[in-house]
Amino acid sequence: MKTELQKMLDGELYVAGDQQLVEMRDNARKLMSQYNQMIAEPLEPRVAVLKQLLGKCSTLDIQPPFYCDYGTHIQVGENFFMNFNCVILDCAMVTIGDNVMCGPYVQIYTAYHPIVAEERIKGPELAAPITIGDNVWLGGGAIICPGVTIGSNTTIGAGSVVTKDIPAGVFAAGNPCRVIRAI
């Protein structure tokens, strides 16, 4: 029998109130609270806390405040930058490539709920992984929805809502986000 964690990571309906998941979120919140209090601290001590929080990270700079659900389901490559007030709901894997930059208020959501009301009110949730390629820029206020892949060398315009995959090497923007032109 699968645990709720296994169901969550496998994209199946899961119960977010499961004790193991609650403990994992509580641990993440403790580390985020510590991290978000380090606003005036140099980068090195902040990165040490991020390395405890995130599943895999290398060279990175995330400006506090930063929020996530678990942290352990976030993998970031080399030279990652995320500006102030960003959120990653990592109920599924979030894989971010090298040289990715995020403007302020970027939101990356793997979590979602059933769209049929009768199913939604029962409580179980869903999650779908997000993949962001190398050399991507996510403009301020962009929202990346569950299950989306953004190809390498792509720029997402500020305020965009990315509901579907975006190919590599393009500028895309809007709500819903669509390809504007090749780069």
Rank of each mutant, 00 (worst) to 15 (best):
L54W: 04
H113M: 06
V47M: 12
C68E: 00
A48N: 08
N79E: 11
Q37T: 11
A117W: 10
E44H: 02
K51L: 07
N36L: 04
F81P: 08
S58L: 11
M82G: 12
I115K: 15
I108S: 04
C57T: 12
Q63Y: 10
T110C: 09
I115N: 13
V106W: 01
T95G: 09
V47N: 00
A111T: 09
F66E: 05
C91T: 05
Q52T: 08
Q37F: 01
Q34P: 01
V100S: 06
M93N: 04
F81R: 11
N85I: 06
V100P: 02
P45S: 08
M82I: 13
I88R: 05
V49I: 15
I74G: 00
G71H: 01
Q34V: 11
M38A: 04
L60Q: 04
T110I: 07
F66T: 02
V116F: 04
R46F: 03
G77Y: 09
P42A: 13
F66M: 05
F80M: 08
Y112I: 03
N79C: 11
G77R: 02
L50H: 02
D90R: 07
G55S: 09
Y35N: 05
D69I: 03
G77I: 10
Y112M: 14
A117F: 14
E44P: 10
I74R: 01
T72Y: 07
I74Q: 04
V116S: 13
I115D: 10
C91D: 03
D98H: 14
E78D: 15
D98N: 15
N36T: 05
Y70C: 09
C57I: 01
Q63I: 14
Q75F: 14
V47G: 00
Y109D: 05
C68F: 03
V49Y: 04
P45E: 01
I96G: 00
Y67W: 12
I39R: 14
C102L: 13
I62Q: 10
K51H: 15
K56C: 07
